[in-house]
Computed example of a mutant assay.
Amino acid sequence: MLGVVIDDSRAMRKILRSFLADLGFEVLEAGDGQEALEVVSGADSVPELALIDWNMPVMNGLEFVLEVRKRPEWRSMTLVMVTTESEHSQIVKALASGAHEYVIKPFTKDGMIDKLALLGLVPVGVL
């Protein structure tokens, strides 16, 4: 499976990359939404999963979600916001814009596995 981690924090990308790799994902990375569009466009296949921070320079996470949802060839991508934005209105906005799930930082590995399991993205035997 292919996943993409989109976060302007190099440390957070490293954490999420390691987490996804442990679940068997090949992982691409981007530091903002615009870079992520380029990375996904250049990939051999459409990623099954994108973990997306909200607050990033150039193009934020919500803008990335909206752009992905405009492209029919990327509609199969599961989008999960992973952010410090914890206001109910922000969560509603992200989900209404096309995100499948919302994870508030800081998160636990078990909590993330639970979210991905609900989305059918955790390999059998990991739980």
Rank of each mutant, 00 (worst) to 15 (best):
G3K: 03
G3N: 05
V4I: 11
V4L: 08
I6T: 11
D7F: 00
D8M: 09
A11N: 00
A11Q: 00
I15V: 15
I15F: 01
R17L: 07
R17C: 13
S18N: 12
L20V: 08
L20F: 06
L20T: 07
A21R: 13
A21Q: 14
A21Y: 03
D22P: 07
L23F: 12
F25A: 08
L28Q: 05
L28V: 05
G31I: 06
Q34D: 04
A36K: 13
L37I: 05
E38N: 08
V40S: 05
S41H: 03
S41P: 00
S41R: 08
G42S: 06
D44T: 14
S45Y: 03
P47Q: 06
P47C: 04
P47A: 00
P47L: 00
A50T: 12
A50D: 12
L51H: 04
L51E: 13
I52K: 04
D53N: 06
D53Q: 02
D53V: 07
W54R: 02
N55E: 14
P57S: 08
V58R: 15
V58I: 13
V58K: 14
V58M: 09
F64H: 05
V65H: 02
V65L: 01
L66K: 15
L66E: 14
E67R: 08
E67Q: 07
E67F: 01
E67K: 13
V68N: 07
V68E: 09
R69Y: 01
R71N: 14
R71A: 13
R71V: 10
R71F: 09
R75T: 09
R75M: 14
S76N: 14
S76W: 13
M77D: 10
T78Q: 12
V80R: 01
V80C: 11
V80P: 11
V82Y: 01
V82S: 04
V82A: 03
T83I: 05
T83W: 01
T83C: 03
E85I: 01
E87N: 13
E87C: 08
E87G: 09
H88L: 10
H88D: 12
S89C: 11
Q90K: 02
V92M: 12
K93N: 14
A94D: 11
L95M: 09
L95K: 10
S97E: 11
S97I: 09
S97K: 08
H100Q: 06
H100S: 03
F107E: 12
T108C: 07
K109A: 03
M112G: 02
L116S: 02
G120L: 01
V122M: 10
P123A: 09
P123E: 06
V124I: 06
G125H: 00
G125Q: 02
G125W: 00
G125A: 00
L127Q: 04
L127N: 00
